[in-house]
């Protein structure tokens, strides 16, 4: 592990937190791409380059699928600047921070008893991503947010499993899962606007 692992893990969590708080499709996609970059740097610090590269390539491809879907459907709006901050966003931020704090507190025990081979920062980041993904799924119903939340959830799971067991077939399956999730999300986003073209279900 490099001395930057805390920074990269923290960045990945911060990006997931932003996606939990913000309700803006353009920033959601950008932040998701940045989250994958932070994860790449974190994985790079404890695993082989190929493993880290697969993660970021698949992650960015998934992000690109969502971005292109939004852009071609005309659903992407200009970023709002300066961003407004509402009370509900504040509540979501507090909730996200609380979750990360709880995971941070539990991580040493969990690492000792269940995941002895997982570096602590990797454990905190992976569990944090998984729980923030679940939180986001519980708070949003729009397909794009559910898709991004599930991508966050699976990137956390992939990170955790990658730290305990490295398997090419599992990597391949996780990559297929991320891409199929992005395609499913794209399908859910565009399918209503497609009805006029198709004519039949």
């Amino acid at each position: 592990m490099s001395s930057f692992d805390g920074l990269f893990g923290g960045l990945a969590l911060a990006f997931a937190l932003i996606n939990l708080v913000r309700r803006d499709w353009a920033s959601t996609v950008i932040v998701l791409a940045l989250q994958y970059l932070a994860l790449f740097l974190l994985i790079f610090s404890f695993a082989e380059t190929s493993f880290a590269l697969i993660r970021i390539l698949v992650g960015w491809m998934s992000t690109l699928v969502i971005y292109l879907t939004l852009a071609s459907s005309g659903m992407l709006k200009k970023l709002e600047w300066p961003p407004r901050f509402s009370a509900s966003q504040g509540m979501r931020l507090m909730m996200g921070l609380l979750v990360i704090a709880v995971i941070w507190a539990l991580a040493p025990n969990l690492g000792r008893e269940v995941f002895p081979f997982t570096p602590q920062m990797v454990l905190v980041t992976s569990l944090g991503l998984m729980v923030l993904g679940i939180l986001q799924v519980g708070m949003r119903e729009e397909p794009i947010y559910v898709t991004v939340a599930l991508l966050t959830f699976f990137s956390g799971l992939g990170l955790l499993y990658g730290s305990i067991e490295r398997s090419t077939v599992l990597e391949g399956l996780f990559a297929a899962l991320d891409l199929s999730l992005a395609l499913t999300g794209a399908y859910l986003i565009v399918k209503v606007s497609d009805v006029e073209d198709e004519g039949e279900p």
């Binding site: 859910l188 399918k191 209503v192």
Partner: peptide, 18 residues
């Protein structure tokens, strides 16, 4: 989980909101 993803277009055909 991949099967779940593949089944989404069947469960929610085009023309209906998810």
């Amino acid at each position: 989980q991949l099967i779940v993803m593949v089944s989404v277009p069947l469960l929610s055909p085009r023309g209906q909101a998810a």
